[in-house]
Design a protein around this nucleic acid. Structure first.
Length: 489
RNA sequence: UCCUGGGUAGCUCAGUGGUAGAGCGGUCGGCUGUUAACCGACUGGUCGGGGGUUCGAGUCCCUCCCCAGGAGCCA
């Protein structure tokens, strides 16, 4: 290491980055101590919080910054990235980020050894460091806790970090997406995403659903409408899945209530803040569920997720400057209007839309503008919806389809329907949509071998996370967005 | 694919026909409680590519490339 260090170009400490300092994250609800069984190889771990014993050198316990409040007046060891540094000659304030939070480290010239002081001078933004010091409560420190360093070791000097303290354009940031992830708002949005995904799994697990993974590589279009990514499958054509729904329907006969949750792909040349080429979708499908129950499920599901995010992501929402009042208003029941009523409402506002037209982005915004929570719209004209949707028994011109539109312009977050369970009708619809019958034989089997009414919906994860986070563009709700003609990094 | 707005220093931008600019960054120096620290000095350019008009083009014209936002489609 010593020889390596000499090879590095020494440079002066950099001026602080503007990245916000989320110091000393308090432990989340689950982060309680875990008992470490003897002989597990982790005997060195702190019994009060998840810490990692550094087995390579038998050094002190390594503490996660989120747990600092549990170590007041104790000496701790931290390893992390230098997020920011300010210096006044004989005293330095170093913000260290370890993934669990950011902590302020205070180093006085008179209290650290020469090597540590030299390391502090040399370390630049995003260098990795090891800090040993005592945890103090101090109102002057962001987060309320700071570490008075006794030692600071420069583990790896960083090259000049491209993301500097002042503003950057989105094009530049997207080129550096892998580095942009380190900034506070990006970290907060990804944590919200993680929480949403966990909440989804918990909701369905607790509800008795079985996870049924649908294939990514499929032989044909699911709905026959979207443009799909094509790939070679040993000489045959295969397509990246745009929905798992069709593969879920056979599974309900085996497992009753099922869901899939994974990436989906659309090759449409959509270039808007509400579209990605690769996005994640969760799709429940339930045997014997009729339309009204589906509407209730979608509503309950959304409310459950919103509550969970408000409950567990308060700190992240603050970093994101999300107005949580708008989310707190999301309570049952959601307004529920028919497609026809939605058209009438739009026309009353002077919108030239006609019955039979599909809603555009502006139309959706106009509809939700009247409400403070998501809006359910149902019973769409048969011809603008997918082939598998069950006709309304009261009016065969419309189908038992449901869209849930998020407020604040985030658009359609849920689309679902009761499915056609009658074999003959489904065969007719396939023909009307000019879909290749032979490719759907397996799908028709669901109706041949003991059919039942059933329903399901799909929810786009990124749109939901964007709505929760108050982020305007979906690209900031997924770690590595795939966008029109853009696949780097 | 179409519509609109852009491309000037590492980054964000100003510059509407006459010497290429600012802030931030970077480098050097100063500062013992900083909060996007601050103060001083220094550093920084194929003005997206090509062609044209002009005594003279970052600026006007043509063309191509790239980026952003939106439309259609959807989650």
């Amino acid at each position: 290491m010593g020889t390596r260090r000499k090879a590095w170009r020494l440079s002066r400490p950099r001026v602080p980055a503007r990245w916000s300092v989320t110091a000393g994250r308090l432990p989340r609800a689950e982060q309680k101590g875990v008992a470490i069984p003897a002989g597990s190889g982790h005997e060195g771990s702190c019994p009060r919080c998840h810490t990692i014993h550094d087995s390579t050198g038998g050094r002190d316990f390594m503490t996660e910054i989120r747990n600092l409040s549990q170590h007041v007046n104790e000496e701790v060891t931290l390893e992390g990235w230098l997020a920011n540094k300010r210096s006044s000659g004989k005293i330095a304030f170093v913000q260290v980020r370890d993934g669990s939070g950011t902590a302020q480290v205070v180093a006085s010239r008179s209290e650290v050894d020469d090597a540590s002081w030299q390391a502090i001078q040399e370390a630049v933004q995003e260098s990795t460091v090891r800090v040993v010091g005592r945890v103090n409560e101090d109102h002057r420190a962001p987060g309320g806790y700071e570490i008075h360093a006794s030692e600071l070791e420069l583990l790896a000097l960083s090259e000049e970090f491209p993301i500097s303290p002042k503003e950057h354009g989105t094009a530049f940031l997207m080129e550096h997406r892998h580095l942009w992830l380190r900034s506070s708002k990006q970290r907060a949005a990804l944590r919200v995403r993680s929480e949403v995904c966990q909440a989804i799994r918990d909701y369905f697990y607790d509800g008795g659903y079985t996870l049924v993974d649908s294939p990514i590589l499929t032989p044909a279009a699911c709905e026959g409408t979207s443009t799909l990514f094509e790939t070679d499958y040993f000489g045959d054509k295969a397509y990246l899945s745009q929905s798992g729904q069709l593969y879920l329907e056979p599974a309900i006969a085996a497992l009753g209530k099922v869901y899939c949750f994974g990436p989906t792909f659309r090759a449409e040349k959509s270039k808007t803040r509400r579209h990605l080429m690769e996005f994640w979708m969760v799709e429940p499908e339930i045997a014997f569920m009729r339309f009204e129950a589906l509407c209730d499920l979608a509503e309950d599901f959304v409310c459950s997720l919103v509550t969970r995010v408000l409950d567990r992501c308060a700190e992240d929402l603050e970093v994101l400057e999300r107005d949580t009042k708008a989310l707190e208003a999301v309570q049952k029941p959601f307004p529920h209007i028919s497609y026809t009523e939605a058209i009438e409402r739009l026309q009353a506002k002077g919108n030239p839309i006609a019955w039979g037209d599909d809603f555009g982005a502006d139309d959706e915004t106009q509809i939700t503008a009247d409400f403070d929570r998501p809006v359910k719209i149902s019973r769409f004209p048969t011809k603008i919806k997918a082939f598998y949707m069950e006709p309304d028994p009261d009016n065969p011109e419309v189908v038992l389809g449901l869209d849930v539109i998020a407020p604040e312009g985030y658009g359609e977050i849920i689309g679902g329907s009761q499915r056609i369970h009658d074999l003959e009708l489904l065969e007719r619809r396939l023909a009307e949509h000019e879909l290749p019958r032979e490719a759907f034989e397996w799908y028709l089997d669901v109706r041949r071998y003991g059919t039942c009414p059933h329903s399901g919906f799909g929810m786009g994860i990124e749109r939901f996370v964007a709505w929760m986070s108050g982020v305007k563009h979906l690209r900031e709700t997924i770690p590595y967005p795939r966008m029109l003609n853009k696949i780097y990094p």
